[in-house]
């Protein structure tokens, strides 16, 4: 395997990891928060007054 192929494989792996991480983060951000009583979509750690 020559040096060009190695560099390409590294770039490709980084791109796959980036796309994968992006998908994973989106899926998590779009899921319900465990400590929320309602699905407000706030994604914050703000203390809920009515919980």
């Amino acid at each position: 395997m020559d040096i060009q192929t190695v560099i390409v494989l590294i770039i490709l792996a980084a791109a796959i990891v980036f796309v994968g991480t992006m998908l994973l983060r989106k899926t998590r951000a779009f899921s319900l928060k465990g400590d929320c009583t309602s699905d407000c979509g706030c994604n914050t750690k703000a203390k809920k007054l009515n919980s």
């Binding site: 770039i11 490709l12 791109a15 796959i16 980036f18 796309v19 992006m22």
Partner: peptide, 13 residues
Amino acid sequence: GTVILAISIVLWA
């Protein structure tokens, strides 16, 4: 520079 670039690399492959 981020999403499109990464997807372009994967698609190229």
